[in-house]
Write a protein that binds this DNA or RNA. Structure first.
Lengths: 214, 214
DNA sequence: GTCTATACGATGATAGAC
DNA sequence: GTCTATCATCGTATAGAC
């Protein structure tokens, strides 16, 4: 244990180079498919440096999750754009991820860690589960202002439900794109976005009708 | 190359034991995470037997895909039940797959092969892409009778679109379940199923309105 | 067809010079 | 902090007895 304390003040550039390399490899090769040697090669640093900056593979991936999360938090401020879901699905087209986009890349890591259940207990997977929870909370906070108050009064969880549905659709279409499904992602992006909007409108109408009866 | 020709007439039971073991491991550990030694151990056979029945890991997984596909084809005959989507999403709850259910397990393999793009060129991944196409064709054939003819006349691809959407939703909620999202899957199953039905109804109404104008 | 022993490469990780 | 050399282990695959 000759490692430095886990603070980021010293030479952040090499550490970032390693994280960027790991991210690029992870989104195409998965956790087991990403090797420390390859991470080193791609980052332009020797293996020793990787192990100086990160204790081991688990910790590297764990910090990779945080790295993406920090970027995501910085990007996703302010009220949600109505087109957010539409754009995220449309962006799936081709099934390739741009690792430059840390926020987007997080959700690919998410798919990896969700599926490899053998990694239960793995530091990185546990961190993923924790960060995912936090991201959902933040997304719910941003989506709720778009839900009519009358709906939330009846079903306080409705905002969360729309977030969950949006995530499921985005993940599902990313899988489709990665499987070479020959479909028009723009059309499905529109379809999904309008379906969610329709659900909100329908629920609002139902609540209004209910109140009428009172 | 001292292997037998690829026919299944001889001692199918051990071959099946190996496939079952591989399937169980694959759905929890992924492709890279599944080792031949572990497959052998779980099947109760020595490593040598595994390599006698299957040339290598790639071929084992390739045949695993076919194995699931055959079972799926046998199960999925006749017209679709309206509750199919509802049940497949509800079945995701907990994020665990029962490897006994080959048909369901196929879609977990699907997720694995969709994500590990490093496996491009891998026999098993190529086979997955091919089988996936075939399964979609079969699903479209079964769903189309449920779509009003008037809709299909205007948009012959509408049946396929609903199949794609249903698959995306099912995959997306499986990811959610595997990530420990604490949601009511039965509710989302209902929500998704009714959303798809609403889309069909809405499209039918739109087509009818259009014809009115003619 | 079954099984044991083993070759061989790849991978995670460390030691220690600079 | 950087880098080279190296180790121990594991994983795929094979050889060959039975």
């Amino acid at each position: 244990m000759t490692r430095r304390s886990r603070t980021h003040q010293s030479t952040p550039s090499n550490e970032q180079a390693i994280l960027d390399a790991a991210l690029t490899l992870a989104v195409t090769a998965g956790y087991e498919g990403t090797t420390m040697a390859e991470v080193a090669r791609l980052s332009g640093l020797p293996v020793g440096s990787v192990y100086w900056h990160f204790n081991n593979k688990e910790q590297l991936f764990s910090e990779l999750i945080d790295y993406c999360f920090e970027t995501w938090k910085a990007d996703h401020t302010g009220p949600t754009n109505r087109d957010l879901l539409r754009r995220s699905i449309a962006g799936s087209a081709g099934g390739s991820v741009n690792p430059e986009n840390k926020a987007e890349a997080f959700w690919i890591l998410a798919l990896l860690f969700a599926l490899e259940k053998r990694l239960t207990g793995n530091l990185a997977r546990e961190r993923y589960l924790e960060v995912r929870k936090q991201m959902f909370e933040l997304m719910v906070e941003r989506v709720e202002p778009q839900i009519p108050d009358s709906v939330l009064a009846v079903d306080p969880e409705f905002g969360r439900k729309m977030v969950v549905l949006g995530r499921a659709l985005t993940d599902g279409f990313y899988i489709a794109a990665s499987s070479g499904d020959d479909i028009d992602f723009l059309e499905f992006a529109d379809l999904s976005a309008s379906a969610v909007e329709a659900l909100i409108a329908r629920r609002a109408a139902a609540v209004a009708a209910d109140e009428e009866k009172q």
